[in-house]
Design a protein around this nucleic acid. Structure first.
Lengths: 325, 325
DNA sequence: GTTTTTTTTTCAAACGTTTGCGGAACGCTT
DNA sequence: AAGCGTTCCGCAAACGTTTGAAAAAAAAAC
């Protein structure tokens, strides 16, 4: 069955298309009597305006793009939930695309966004993204890009991040304060700016006051392996830069039979869910995806409101005590 | 800055719009020389076709809608991930909307889908959804609806579900086969149809051959409490109906200091992620959101291919061996 | 019964594509 | 020199809306 159009209604009522259009939007030019007739028929025919036609005509799409490595992730899913919620409230739709952490897919996705004439893009870059031109082109077309979580280094972009420096500081301080002697610090891929920042802040705070074994893992399995190896050096504390790394490290610790926090302490930076799965619960510095999503959205709205100021915003971090340190 | 259009290219090249259009799609009517000229300029100007115009002109939108209570959920996020993946591979976009388990928001979302002229809808209804008319209207417009997970009772719809009965069967059989003597079986809220189905199937298979302590927990914390209490009765096996329950039970077990599987065995029905967080990994009957997503997608494609047969499909469950039983 | 004003409605162009059809321009055959 | 077949390209309509401007109809004023 075909959709109802303005034309169809206009023919049935013997009125022009423009009258129908105006009647439906309660335009003052149209008489009450006509408005009523039109509305009645429109309801009866279940009229819904064709969004494509409107967007084409008005060249306003009310669509945001969102590119993320994977939807299925405890951090990103809450980020997306927040952005979707806000978008819907503000009459925007959301085109969500997964890059699978593949730079080629990422550029395909950006292309798709461009074809859909999005009004703005939320982007979390892949770990291999090196060419930022596709993003710059968007900016050139007056399409604001808000980078989140994994962001480029350059400061010519708008970014929202968890407070990497602060959260790593808090974690390091907590370790120092609890008089630990030797920490195994597990970070993510060395190329990511998030890794660099957390590593730098962590090291700066630790300031060589205690022994530190630093390793980099690309995923949970690598984190597990590296932890198993590193445990031979008998650290008394494990610091994990992220949830993914925490899951790997925890498996290694469980496997080793070490008791937390008696034999070994654990502290992590986390979105908040994973640490609560263990007993004792893991002490972590919270970096909320949901809060970050809200921040990203308000940043987007600011850009659309005309702000051209490029900045990096962060959400504050706080320590959530489990019993693991 | 404005987007490049066919018109712009045509003016710069002194050719007609239709020639540009055909050249870009490699139409045989256009000479190689012209094609080359057009492609070069199009590349230089970074031409991307306006999807809205194409959709309007062709009245084909290549867009699916997906309505889910919440994106931030370890079952739904993997379902969505699968659907997004397939959609993109098949040249469809995906409009993802959250209902927040609110029936009013659900109908708003359906309206939005209609306005966007979606080609099909994936829907997980809210727990309060009673009026299915909005969905029926979609069907009336030849827009197939594939319900997933939480589906209406009526059999006039296409549905894809996890196999509740089968998965509980498999878990119970596994317990029986491993010669266990006393099982603590933890189920969810008694009113949910998913609980009823799994409970019935579990009990039927166990068939009173071994002692069973049956409890119901509404959430992870309750599951933890109930497990702690029930452990006093010295079960040698714990069965968990879902991931949420598993997380609670595992905390209780970790707290108790019991060794898995030596002191106590654990088996669960799960999406697959949570069981891998522990060591040893938990043996579980898989009910994969990801696989369900793939099934839903192929069901959608079948509908679009012309199939009008309404059916309820289930993904088969299989036992994934960890080391917990 | 005109003219003027106000109210109500229609016209027509535009948004950016696709596509059936018609028409040059060219070479080839008679 | 006429006919014919190719090859290449342009015209114009259509998709469903919005919107400025013009026109028509109705009401008011003289």
């Amino acid at each position: 069955m075909n959709n109802t159009t303005l034309k169809k209604i206009s023919e049935m009522l013997g009125l022009s298309i423009s009258t129908i259009s105006r009647a439906l939007k309660n335009h003052p030019d149209i008489s009450e009597k006509t408005k009523q007739r039109v509305n009645e028929l429109a309801n009866a025919l279940d009229y819904e305006p064709n969004a494509n036609a409107i967007h084409l005509r008005t060249s306003k799409n009310n669509l945001f793009g969102l590119i993320v490595p994977s939807i299925s992730n405890f951090f990103y899913d809450s980020f997306i939930a927040a952005v979707e919620e806000e978008s819907r409230k503000n009459n925007y739709s959301l085109l969500i695309l997964q890059s699978g952490d593949d730079a080629a897919v990422e550029v395909e996705n950006i292309k798709l966004c461009r074809q859909n004439r999005i009004s703005g893009l939320f982007a979390c870059i892949t770990s291999q993204t090196v060419n930022l031109d596709p993003f710059l082109k968007l900016e050139g077309l007056d399409i604001p890009v808000i980078f989140f979580d994994k962001v480029p280094d350059d400061n010519i972009f708008n970014k929202v991040c968890v407070a990497d420096t602060l959260s790593a500081n808090i974690a390091a301080t907590t370790i120092l304060e609890s008089k630990k002697k030797k920490v195994l610090a597990i970070f993510g891929n060395e190329n990511l700016s998030i890794t660099k920042k957390r590593l730098a802040a962590f090291n700066k705070t630790i300031n060589k006051k205690i022994k530190t074994i630093t390793v980099h893992a690309n995923n949970s399995a690598e984190a597990e392996q590296l932890t198993i190896q590193s445990l031979k050096e008998k650290p008394d504390t494990v610091f994990c830069m992220s949830d993914e790394i925490l899951t790997g490290a925890m498996k290694a610790i469980q496997k080793s039979g070490l008791k937390i926090p008696g034999d070994i302490a654990v502290i992590s930076i986390s979105n908040g869910f994973i640490p609560t799965l263990y007993f004792p619960e893991i002490t972590y510095v919270e970096t909320s995806g949901y809060k970050l999503g809200k921040l990203a959205f308000s940043s987007m709205m600011a850009c659309l409101g005309g702000s051209t100021f490029m900045q990096e915003l962060t959400i504050e971090s706080l320590l959530v005590e489990g019993g693991s340190i």
